[in-house]
Design a binder for these strands. Structure first.
Length: 291
DNA sequence: TCCTCCCTGTTC
DNA sequence: GAACAGGGAGGA
């Protein structure tokens, strides 16, 4: 399940394979994978891939066009190919003669600067992923994009506290809300709360200044360590080279319900918060806070 | 503000 | 053969 560290890794491994390539053919194999606001697949024909970046969990393929990129000419030309991988999405580059598999939702035939061709696949077993081909006017209408919060790296403790202020829901539910923070999913929410010693069901606004400090430091540390390990591979995640990450071997909370706490040895408890499986240590992460 | 749904492979 | 995994949209 790609969260921020996995998307960073995918962007890093995809970029050298597709940069400066020109899109020649786009085949959309599942119509519902395309976002409602998206420009049609054919709008990508002829544009060049200028960069591959990421914001939160969104993979952003930056495009540049050789022709007028304004809508005034009557034809909109996308400058962004945004990909939300959700649970099982993958972007992988294969040889040009590779055929789609049963989970392929879209293929992009790319011409390299030297004239050779490759085929980029968007595979997505569970079909939750979304493709968005957009110009700036469309991005400005995409609420998920316009309302996306800052990444933890771009916040200071006071900034985090300000974003949690007035929010009564459980801190874990708030961390998963991409409008509050971008990039945190179920894995890194559990890992960060464990590392910070904060119970996942604490009302977000009840965190003290000192706890906000600890939580932000934990999120940044967990995300950085995972990026260094090329992300976490639970089942399906692979980077753009098809390689798995290694951070799953460092989990202290996620998926460890019933096992011993790595700090105090207590039995880790499993519950549900915001409809998501949640694991925490009842001793290290107490409900009334812990110094 | 919380619940259900989307989707399919894996596990119980 | 049902439960589970889960991000986000949309509805109650």
């Amino acid at each position: 399940m790609p969260e921020l560290p996995e998307v960073v890794t995918i962007a890093r491994t995809l970029k050298p394979q597709v940069i400066d390539c020109r899109i020649r053919v786009v085949k959309l194999l599942r119509a519902a994978t395309l976002h409602k606001l998206s420009l049609p697949p054919d709008s990508l024909i002829g544009v060049k891939i200028a960069d591959v970046t990421q914001r939160g969990k969104l993979l952003l393929i930056k495009l540049e066009s050789a022709v007028d990129s304004s809508c005034e000419s009557g034809k909109c030309i996308p400058d962004t190919l945004a990909v939300h991988l959700r649970m099982t999405g993958r972007m992988v580059v294969h040889a040009i003669d590779t055929e789609p598999n049963s989970h392929t939702k879209c293929t992009f035939d790319l011409e390299r600067p030297d004239g050779s061709m490759v085929r980029m696949f968007f595979d997505d077993m569970r079909a939750f992923g979304i493709l968005m081909f957009a110009d700036q006017s469309i991005m400005a209408k995409w609420s998920f994009w316009t309302e996306l919060g800052p990444e933890p790296f771009d916040l200071d403790p006071a900034g985090l506290a300000a974003r949690l202020a007035g929010r009564r829901p459980a801190i874990k539910a708030v961390l998963l809300d991409q409008r509050v923070l971008a990039g945190i999913g179920n894995i890194y929410a559990d890992e960060s709360l464990f590392q910070a010693g904060i119970h996942p069901e604490r009302p977000a606004a009840s965190l003290t200044t000192e706890e906000c400090d600890r939580l932000l430091a934990a999120m940044v540390d967990v995300l950085r360590r995972s990026i260094a390990a090329c992300g976490s591979s639970i089942r399906d995640y692979r980077d753009a080279n098809g390689n798995a990450g290694a951070f799953q071997n460092s989990f202290a909370a996620y998926g460890r319900g019933g096992q011993d706490c790595k700090i105090c040895g207590s039995k880790m408890e499993k519950t549900k918060v915001a409809g998501r499986a949640t694991v925490y240590c009842p001793n290290c992460q107490t409900k009334n806070g812990k110094a």
